[in-house]
């Protein structure tokens, strides 16, 4: 069992001895927002931007269902599904990395973060092949409304995956240097929350653009 897990309020007082050191949630409230508050405001802003994009797509589709359905058939369903699995798994790896660091398991933290980055890179590789196939077929932003949305929406998300990988890279380097541990994992949680947001957005994007007809 993990000995010092301030974020496991499920365990009762009997099997969860108080850690000998002060933690940020040993105060009055058991409810805790992981990571930095500023990151959550940033995430909220990002979510609102994507909401506008998702809803623009959905209502544009409602006005021309036949065109959207016909164009959607040219998308690679398997590539979209594989990318969902990659992002979901990569997100889970980040959770495992944070859990490892909370146990002061530095090597574990480095390993899980490296695995998470691999998942993110895999996503980019699949996406590049997907774009290449579309561009080879002569499809551009101006082909039709569906492709305008497909390319801009997925590319906007693509850029967020790249930023997420940069963040994971910084976290990996810092974990490697021993900057984080059971008393210092706030930055890891903040970066992790951003990566989970990238995952959350794709969870909506995949059925919306690739599958729903």
């Amino acid at each position: 069992m993990s000995t010092a897990s301030p974020a496991s309020p499920a365990s009762g007082p009997v099997n969860a001895p108080q850690p000998a050191f002060p933690t940020e949630d040993s105060g009055a409230s058991r409810r805790r927002l992981p990571g930095d508050l500023a990151v959550w405001f940033f995430i909220l802003a990002e979510l609102l931007a994507f909401a506008v994009f998702f809803l623009s797509y959905a209502f544009a589709r409602a006005r021309d269902v036949a065109l959207f359905n016909a164009s959607q058939l040219t998308l690679d369903l398997n590539a979209g599904a594989i990318n969902t699995l990659l992002l979901v798994t990569s997100s889970w790896f980040v959770v495992r990395a944070i859990q490892a660091v909370k146990r002061d398991d530095k090597a574990g933290g480095v390993r899980w973060l490296a695995a998470a980055m691999l998942g993110g890179f895999g996503f980019l590789v699949v996406k590049v092949f997907e774009y290449a196939a579309k561009f080879d077929a002569g499809i551009t932003l101006s082909t039709n409304t569906f492709y305008m949305f497909y390319i801009s929406l997925t590319f906007f998300h693509f850029m967020h995956v790249i930023l997420g990988l940069v963040i994971l890279g910084v976290l990996l380097a810092n974990t490697w240097r021993g900057a984080y541990g059971r008393d210092a994992y706030h930055v890891l949680e903040s970066g992790g929350a951003y990566w989970h947001m990238v995952d959350l957005l794709w969870i909506i994007l995949f059925p919306l653009v690739y599958v729903m007809r």
Partner: peptide, 30 residues
């Protein structure tokens, strides 16, 4: 993802409501 990856299950209610509310709103509008 919100509850178990982002760890908002036991976060302050306002944040939980904001993020889950965003999800529910976007999916309902879709």
């Amino acid at each position: 993802v919100i509850y178990d990856f982002m760890e908002l299950r036991h976060a302050p209610r306002m944040w939980k409501l904001l993020i889950v509310g965003w999800l529910a709103f976007v999916l309902s509008m879709i």
